[in-house]
Amino acid sequence: MQARISFITLAVPDLAAVRTFYVDGLGWAPALEEPDEVLMISVGERIVLSLWSEAGFEAEVGPIRRGAGLVPITLAHNVPTADAVDTVLEQARTAGAPEVSQGQWREWGGYSGYFADPAGFRWEIACNPGPIGQSVL
């Protein structure tokens, strides 16, 4: 098996709200859309963000574990500068992100902040000056 991710699939409680956030708010274009079922967005070369309604996800994959706390995953979007981090965080705020942190310098040497989409998934917006961070720009 090759080391590669083709789809990131996230189960969301309100697909319409998530669509409004990503498509109308952030301006991302749907690659495939089945209302009330799934929204797929190409987010890079050969990688798709697949947002499923919870009901459809559970029917195919299995029951979702529910409880207090954050969803134990973050998605990351790297940008070349700290100013670009702040710009994207403000764009997320304007798009209606229910939670947006301020960008800050991190112990690992970069600058980042987080926002939540309407389903609670956290996106890290980061400027990572190290080689691994630069490799994804």
Rank of each mutant, 00 (worst) to 15 (best):
N128P: 04
I132G: 03
V61H: 13
A16C: 02
R106D: 13
Q102H: 12
P72I: 05
W123M: 03
P118A: 07
D24F: 09
V71I: 15
A31R: 14
V43C: 08
E37V: 15
R19H: 15
S50W: 10
L51W: 03
V48M: 09
A84Q: 14
I73S: 11
G44T: 08
H77S: 07
W52Q: 05
N78M: 08
G113Q: 05
Q91G: 12
G96W: 07
E34G: 01
E58H: 06
T74C: 00
P98Q: 03
A84D: 15
Y111N: 04
E45S: 14
G67S: 08
A29M: 11
A76G: 15
V12S: 15
S112G: 15
D24K: 09
D117Q: 10
A116Y: 13
V88G: 05
T20H: 12
F121Q: 04
I41T: 04
S50A: 15
L15A: 10
Q91F: 02
M40V: 09
T74D: 05
S101N: 13
G110Y: 06
E45I: 00
P80F: 06
A95I: 13
S42V: 04
V43H: 00
A92N: 09
A17Q: 09
A126S: 15
P72V: 08
G62C: 14
R65Q: 10
L70T: 14
W105T: 11
T94F: 10
V85K: 07
S53A: 15
F21L: 01
A55I: 09
R65L: 04
D24T: 14
S101R: 10
G133A: 03
G133T: 05
E54S: 12
E60R: 15
Y111G: 05
P129F: 10
L15H: 10
E107L: 06
S50P: 12
R19C: 04
G62D: 10
R106L: 13
G103N: 09
G69T: 00
E99W: 06
V71Q: 11
F57R: 01
R93T: 12
S112F: 01
S101V: 07
A95Y: 11
S135C: 05
D24P: 01
E37L: 14
L75Q: 10
A31I: 01
S135V: 04
G69Q: 02
W105M: 06
H77E: 00
S135E: 06
A126Y: 07
T20P: 08
W52R: 09
E90K: 11
Y114I: 00
F21I: 02
L26M: 09
L39M: 07
P63Q: 01
F115I: 08
L70D: 14
V48F: 11
R66N: 07
V43T: 11
L70K: 13
A116R: 14
S101C: 06
Y111H: 10
L75C: 10
A84P: 07
E37K: 15
G120I: 07
G130W: 13
M40P: 01
A84C: 04
V79K: 07
I132M: 07
A68R: 09
E34P: 03
D86K: 01
A82E: 00
I132P: 08
S135M: 07
I64W: 05
C127M: 13
A116E: 10
A92T: 12
V38F: 13
V18K: 10
A76T: 13
